[in-house]
Amino acid sequence: MLDIAEAEPASGEVITLTDVRKTYRSGSIEFEALRGVSLSIEQGEYVAIMGPSGSGKSTLMNILGCLDVPTAGSYLLAGDDVSEMDEIDLAQVRNRRIGFVFQQFNLLPSLPAWRNVELPLTYAHVPRDVRKAKSVAALEKVGLGDRIGNRPGEMSGGQQQRVAVARALVSSPALILADEPTGNLDSTATEDVLALFDELHQQGRTIVLITHEAEVADRAGRVVRVRDGQIHSDRITA
C-alpha cells in the first residue's frame, strides 16, 4: 500500500479523446480553441504535448486534467467518461486519477513539505497517520527524505518542484500531468526534474508533459504537436 513506486497494474488506454471540441464564448464572439482532437494514450506512455501559444495546448491540458469539460466529443479517463461529469465528480476524478505538476510549483508556503504532499490525501479522506507515512515515502522517492519538515521558502526551485512531483505521486494516480514543469527552473534543476520523470517513466507511470522546449520534449517517447486547435503531428520518437 505504501509502495507508490508501483504503477497501476491495469493496462490499455489511460486517455481516449474522441473528436473533442472546446468553444469559448465571450459575448457574441465565439472562439473555437479545440476543433476535433482525437488522441489515445496507453498505460505507461511518456507523451510530450507541444505547440506555440494560442495553439489550444493549454485548453487541451485543462481538459486532460479535468479542470474543464469539452463542449463536444468524449473523454475517457482510465475507462470513465468524464466529459459529462459535474463539478463534484470532476473534483474526485482529479483527486484520485490525476497528479498535477505546475510550472509555478504551487506549493503552500505556510506548510512544511510533507503537509504539502499530503494535501490530495486529505481530500480523499485518508486517515492522518497513513497520510503522513505516504507523504514521507513520496518525498523519499523524489530524494527529499531529509527535507520533509522544510517549508517551500527554505528550498531551491528544483527541490520545490520535486516536492510538487511527490505531491503528484502520493495518491498513485493513473496519470501524471505536468504543465511546463521546467519553465521556472535553471538548467541543473531542469535536468534534475527531467531525470525524475525518466525514472517514473521507467517504473511504468503514464506521464503527459506539456512544454514548448524541444530538449524537454525529446525526453518523451512520443511527441504530439498541436496547432490551430488540432493535432498537427503525432510521432513516436523512442
Binding site: 486534467g65 479542470l67 463539478e87 463534484i88 473534483a91 474526485q92 482529479r94 483527486n95 484520485r96 498535477f100 505546475f102 504551487n106 503552500l108 494535501l119 490530495p120 481530500y123 480523499a124 505531491r167
Partner: peptide, 12 residues
C-alpha cells in the same frame, strides 16, 4: 485553485 485542482470539492 490549487486545492480545487488537487481534488477539493466546492463544499470543502
Amino acid at each position: 485553485g490549487l486545492r480545487k485542482a488537487l481534488g477539493a470539492p466546492p463544499a470543502a
